[in-house]
Amino acid sequence: MISSHLSSFTGLPVLPFTPGMTLPGDPSAVAWRLEVEDFEADPAEFAALVAALRDEVPADAVRALVIGEWGSAYERALPVDLLVEAAEKWTSLRAVFLADLVSEQCEISWLAHGDITGLLAAYPSLEVLRVRGANELRLDPVRHAGLRELVFQTGGLPGSMVRAVGDCDLPALERLELWLGRQDYGGDTGVDDLAGVLAGTRLPALRHLAVCNAEFANHIAAAVAAAPVVPRLEVLDLSKGILTDSGAAALLAGQSLTHLRRLDLHHHFLTEGVCEQIVAALPGVQVDLSEAQKVEVYNGREYRFTAVGE
Rank of each mutant, 00 (worst) to 15 (best):
residue 100 D to Y: 10
residue 100 D to I: 11
residue 100 D to L: 11
residue 101 L to Q: 00
residue 101 L to A: 00
residue 103 S to C: 08
residue 104 E to W: 12
residue 106 C to E: 10
residue 106 C to W: 03
residue 106 C to F: 05
residue 107 E to V: 05
residue 108 I to P: 07
residue 109 S to M: 09
residue 109 S to G: 10
residue 109 S to H: 04
residue 109 S to A: 15
residue 110 W to R: 12
residue 111 L to W: 06
residue 112 A to M: 10
residue 112 A to T: 11
residue 112 A to F: 09
residue 113 H to L: 09
residue 113 H to R: 07
residue 115 D to E: 08
residue 117 T to V: 13
residue 119 L to E: 14
residue 122 A to L: 12
residue 123 Y to P: 07
residue 124 P to L: 06
residue 124 P to W: 04
residue 125 S to R: 13
residue 126 L to R: 03
residue 127 E to C: 12
residue 127 E to W: 12
residue 127 E to Q: 15
residue 127 E to P: 10
residue 128 V to C: 02
residue 129 L to K: 03
residue 129 L to S: 06
residue 130 R to M: 10
residue 132 R to M: 03
residue 132 R to I: 00
residue 132 R to E: 08
residue 134 A to L: 05
residue 134 A to E: 06
residue 134 A to F: 08
residue 134 A to H: 07
residue 135 N to A: 14
residue 135 N to G: 03
residue 136 E to H: 13
residue 136 E to V: 09
residue 137 L to G: 07
residue 137 L to M: 06
residue 137 L to N: 06
residue 137 L to R: 04
residue 137 L to C: 05
residue 138 R to I: 06
residue 142 V to Q: 10
residue 143 R to F: 12
residue 146 G to L: 05
residue 147 L to D: 01
residue 148 R to L: 12
residue 148 R to I: 11
residue 148 R to Q: 15
residue 148 R to G: 14
residue 149 E to L: 07
residue 149 E to P: 03
residue 150 L to G: 01
residue 150 L to V: 00
residue 150 L to Y: 02
residue 157 L to G: 09
residue 157 L to P: 09
residue 158 P to L: 06
residue 158 P to I: 02
residue 159 G to V: 02
residue 159 G to S: 03
residue 159 G to T: 02
residue 159 G to I: 03
residue 161 M to P: 01
residue 162 V to T: 14
residue 162 V to W: 09
residue 162 V to K: 02
residue 162 V to H: 03
residue 165 V to H: 07
residue 167 D to S: 12
residue 168 C to L: 02
residue 168 C to E: 05
residue 168 C to F: 05
residue 168 C to T: 00
residue 169 D to T: 12
residue 169 D to K: 10
residue 169 D to G: 01
residue 170 L to M: 08
residue 171 P to F: 00
residue 172 A to Y: 03
residue 172 A to W: 07
